[in-house]
Design a protein around this nucleic acid. Structure first.
Lengths: 331, 331
DNA sequence: TTGAAAGCGCTAACAT
DNA sequence: ATGTTAGCGCTTTCAA
């Protein structure tokens, strides 16, 4: 890789002049501009971003970090795409990491981001009181939380109304006449799991059901744990007649168990999922689901982050988007 | 963020000594080690990777780039996870970008990677004669191609036997008695599309079929294009009785069209897909598919890259993994 | 065993 | 309009 120095030598000017030409700024005579550009072209010169980043103060690096809890979850993929598109059109680069719901990895990537000197960070904290993230926020680094927010500290965030989304799903089940509704939650300590469970119990209580503790399960937000929970539930002496699954991957896991057992949906067992998927209509049967605007969450989060990078002292904002119940044939 | 300088001041030593302690190397007396470590801890010092990267020569940066064609495609997600896991256990960080099958974006990210000074790159070239990638390889940067390889240049690669995978899928269809088999391909200029089409025509020819050009379609490897191609095919006067879909997303798009039209699989129309998915069993009906070892591809590619970084002059290797036909109920 | 100092490639303040 | 130079945070010779 060629450097400023080489270009300068070839063009017979100082490195400062080359820098000026390349950065497009300042007063450079047309003739030197041309000479320099020719040299730039000839050497296929690309500014070394690493050096640029080392030099420039924070806020000018045009690089943000994105820490994703689980890239296998299509919901986060939507978020990622939203962030990416927004960054792309604003000339920001994205340094992305996937911690696969593993807190140790999350910590590692957090450190990495700090030492990569990003301008800001978009992430879904492992828990509401994620110490590391709280430290980061307090340190003054621009941070936007997505999907899950933080307690005890003021921070920008873009989340969804999980409690209401869950509430409407469970109430829908109740209205359809299901009597024994189970909740298959994700990781017990993350806000989304808790809020969705809240929606679940609220709907049940409001409709005069009494809660059955053995119908409330939590796992680890992944496919395999959806399988485990569904198996446990379905093999009870008095099994549920409907499943409310806490996310995408759990839904898919539960579906797999149901199909393997040769059970009929919704006659033998009904199911409604949190998170819609592009192929929900192609599932057997087409899945009724609570749809989250993942792409929009990503776009908004990125916009919010740019905003804070530009204006570090502005008030924090918490954006709550709505979910939508998409009715198909699984309950 | 604290720097070496601050730690040095606090510990009353030179920055060189701190650097030595932190990097774990060299002869440092036990007593100074302790003092320094205390200071490091107190200031929560983390080495600035940007500075490290600027300083250290290539091969020591412990950072690789990963350029993914389409993160919405679950196959690539598997590859990503394989790469990540391998990197994680070898203390490499991954700088990941998704170009969403957009060549302009690909070029941008390629430039970005170059200027980010990564130790090496894992990528799926946009085409077999992707000029930019070829330039990169020739420049000496360690590169491993996944999923698709390069023509006219020697490069490390991990791919799958697309032609045979497609061949066995189509032959399976033929053996089941289907007579009018269509191919719904991805982007026409990428190697996988071409090789899978080759498998398709080979199987047909070998079994005495004559090719029907109007049954061979290509699109852009995405969900929407699967819908478009399926619609076109299904609305013909003399439509196919079986669909061989060129990838994941195309399969899902085709499935959506079939279901929207109220057609029965496999009676009205059969379908077999390239790429299996974790939830294939939960589709309606459970999908018969050609399964690629995505995770393994990722792991192998990362291993291969580390290898080349360590030994830049070793011979190139082309690894071809096998696909597996997973038989379910869609044909 | 430790420190001083050069230099990675760049930007920006200052000088010309 | 252009050049000189300091310095971002680090590693690594060389010297002490």
């Amino acid at each position: 890789m060629s450097s400023l120095k080489e270009v300068a030598k070839l063009a017979n000017v100082s490195i400062a002049t080359v820098s000026r030409v390349v950065s497009g700024a300042e007063y450079v005579s047309e003739s030197t501009r041309k000479t320099v550009l020719k040299a730039v072209h000839k050497l296929d010169y690309k500014p070394n971003k690493v050096a640029q980043r080392l030099r420039s103060k924070s806020g000018n690096k045009k690089l943000i970090g994105l820490i994703v809890p689980d890239i296998q979850n299509p919901f986060y993929v939507d978020v990622v795409r939203g962030v990416e598109d927004m960054c792309y059109s604003n000339n920001f680069a994205v340094f992305m990491c996937n911690f696969a719901q593993d807190e140790t990895k999350e910590r590692l990537y957090l450190d990495l981001m700090k030492s990569e000197a990003v301008d800001g960070l978009i992430l879904a904290p492992a828990s509401e009181k994620d110490v590391e993230v709280i430290k980061l926020v307090k340190s003054g680094l621009p941070v936007v939380c997505v999907d899950r927010s933080l307690k005890e500290v003021d921070v920008d965030s873009v989340v969804v109304d999980n409690r209401n989304g869950a509430f409407s799903a469970v109430e829908f089940l109740i209205n359809r006449g299901y009597k024994k509704i189970a909740y298959l939650g994700g990781l017990p300590n993350i806000p989304t799991t808790i809020q969705r469970q809240r929606g679940y119990t609220d709907a049940l209580v409001k409709n005069g059901f009494k809660l059955n503790e053995s119908f409330i399960l939590t796992g680890d937000s992944k496919h395999i744990s959806g399988k485990k929970m569904a198996t446990e539930l379905l093999e009870m002496d008095n099994p549920p007649d409907a499943l409310f699954t806490g996310n995408n991957l759990i839904t898919l896991g539960a579906l797999e168990v149901i199909h393997n057992k040769g059970l009929k949906i919704p006659d033998d067992i009904a199911i409604i999922g949190f998170d819609d998927m592009p192929w929900s209509i192609s599932l057997n049967p087409p899945l009724t689901a609570v749809s989250q605007p993942g792409y929009e969450i990503g776009r908004r989060a990125a916009a919010m982050l740019f905003n804070r990078i530009a204006e570090p002292e502005r008030e924090n904002v918490q954006l709550v988007l709505n979910t939508k119940l998409v009715i198909r044939d699984s309950c």
